[in-house]
Design a protein around this nucleic acid. Structure first.
Lengths: 193, 193, 193, 193
DNA sequence: TATGAATGAGCATTCATTCAT
DNA sequence: CATGAATGAATGCTCATTCAT
């Protein structure tokens, strides 16, 4: 005679999990792996530190999960690009605005942290080496090529161009507080004629 | 009357100190404050960890010293700008190249770390809040203004422009390995007509 | 709604805390602050050193807690004096016996250590500068005065007399093992006619 | 062609040695063994810490040397007792005054430290277990017996009496600062009729 | 599922001791 | 004899992780 139905339990579990992930993203993004204590994550999530271990076996697993989420989110964000109406340049401008505007920073931060830390499971590092950079760039290539054909985007090697564009954006997002955030047009000038 | 000439001792001390600073800059830049263990610094410098404490009272003091050096170096780097011959744009291009080319990354990294970490002595944070951003930007303003007057640099608010330019460069340097480093002209497009 | 009743947890916490305090008193009294290693306290308490830090933030905090307890215990010990029946001299004899007989040594030792060590938190030192000496003496004054009026206690300045009496007792307790402990009457002769 | 004669060297050596011993006695007495750092001794003596090791192989050896000196000094102090004119009581009063008056504290402190510390070489501990207590008491016995015969000193077991008397004095000396130092007559009452 | 007591590996820092000069 | 740079063992303290309840 379970007082709570299995379904309710599942719901609780999913909510808790998400709760922890949100909290962890916030803390990891700000402090890095070494600087983040599990107790901070627990406190941020408003639960006991013991409970975090019910959902994530280790700190590294938690971090890896975050990375995975970040990668998926960024990819689906680009995917959405194709569904937009308008010229290639307008699409890119929209994506850029989207990134600069929103609270996307945690995602970029996490990926950055993963690239610069030690304790990161090789598993996560592998994911990163293959994914975001490449995925982003590959998925953006067609749109940039269209932009070149349409005469809006500067000529030159596309991989180089898109790679540089992605680096610039990543850099801005990673720096975060304390730096002057460039306006959309400032960034757009790097790729427009 | 020490059995070793005071000068010899001073030399040893200065060398060791510099040796530790170099090692520490490398490690701190890569791993951040929390991620850097004093044993890593010692190993990188090829000395015992005990000796590090002979020269720097605490990890924080060591880090703060690094920050101070980074700030001084970056400022003097800009100061040199005025001694160069050529148009404003050429000066800026040279500075940009200088930054992108060389191993300036540690300096940008350190300043970034200091802005984003916790254990940073308030002392160091203070230094940072006042210096690099402002100092850099203020010192670059005249040259950018010249560039505008000479018709090479885009119009618009100078503080905004230089701030954005500085952010872009900082971002690139901070990202470091794993990201596609933009070429000089890519970056220059953000400020040229 | 913790799975273990809060009361149970409180009980565990109190027991452990007391356990650590007992162990610490023993070790600190014997070895002094510098001579006491947290591992010794942990071993004496039969727990891991990590757990000690669960209950006391630092070695100094632990020591300060001990001091506080010692002060309170000694004061309440004197307070009890007034509830006793009999002449003033008998009361003092009883107190003296009480001190000499029992395992009061740790309390005197702790207070002594605190007065003679370095790393003692100023907080603890302050407590001591104000308390035991003064408190003891002031609280004993009336009884000694009664003793003088009753013709049992030697004449003379009361503060001087009680202070000396307290010093003698403290000295005996601090010396501890290795010294011949005087008998009650030997000590009593210092104050009786 | 030594610039300094061997005799001069010997003199320097002896002076340095004494200089270190004085400094060490002061520091050890105040801080105990664990609380005393060799650097403190060196600083107190006004020399480099390296030099201390030219004269004393280890910290323990230095401490043991101090103990030896303390023992010898106290014994010779009692020996002098017999050369004094007057009644037994007067002799004892003189000795007591002598102890209470002067800066004998370091000696008592050292012996006390030795009895209560760990790092003390068993060698030193052995010396102590046999010497001061016994030596003092045995050498005082005859005088106390005379005092009893002369009717000035209380009756009773002599070893007990002298032992208690020695304990009282030791305690006073060990407590040191922060305690009310009893006057001569207060102490004398413990042994006089 | 949820909590927090408990453990122990790891890291910052101190300090006795050695040794080149 | 004298100095202080150098080493490393020892110690305070933190924090990831486990587990009884």
């Amino acid at each position: 005679m379970p007082p709570i139905s299995g379904e309710q339990l599942n719901q609780i579990r999913d909510e808790r999990r998400e709760q922890i992930i949100q909290a962890a993203a916030k803390v990891f993004a700000k402090r890095g792996i070494a600087g983040t204590k599990m107790s901070m994550v627990a406190a941020e999530a408003g639960i006991s530190h013991g409970l975090v271990y019910h959902y994530f076996k280790t700190k590294n697993e938690l971090f890896t999960t975050l990375i995975q989420g970040a990668i998926e989110a960024s990819i689906s964000s680009i995917e959405g690009l194709n569904r937009i109406q308008g010229s290639a340049l307008e699409k890119i401008r929209l994506l850029t605005k989207h990134i600069l505007d929103q609270e996307k920073a945690p995602y970029f931060m996490l990926i950055y942290q993963a690239n610069h830390s030690d304790g990161v499971p090789e598993e996560a590092k592998q994911l990163l080496r293959e994914y975001p950079q490449q995925a982003y760039i590959e998925r953006l290539l067609p749109t940039f090529r269209d932009g070149q054909l349409e005469g809006d985007i500067v000529e030159g090697d596309l991989v180089n161009l898109v790679g540089s564009y992605f680096t610039i954006l990543s850099g801005i997002m990673v720096l975060g507080e304390g730096y002057h955030i460039p306006e959309l047009e400032f960034v757009m000038r790097t790729i427009t004629k």
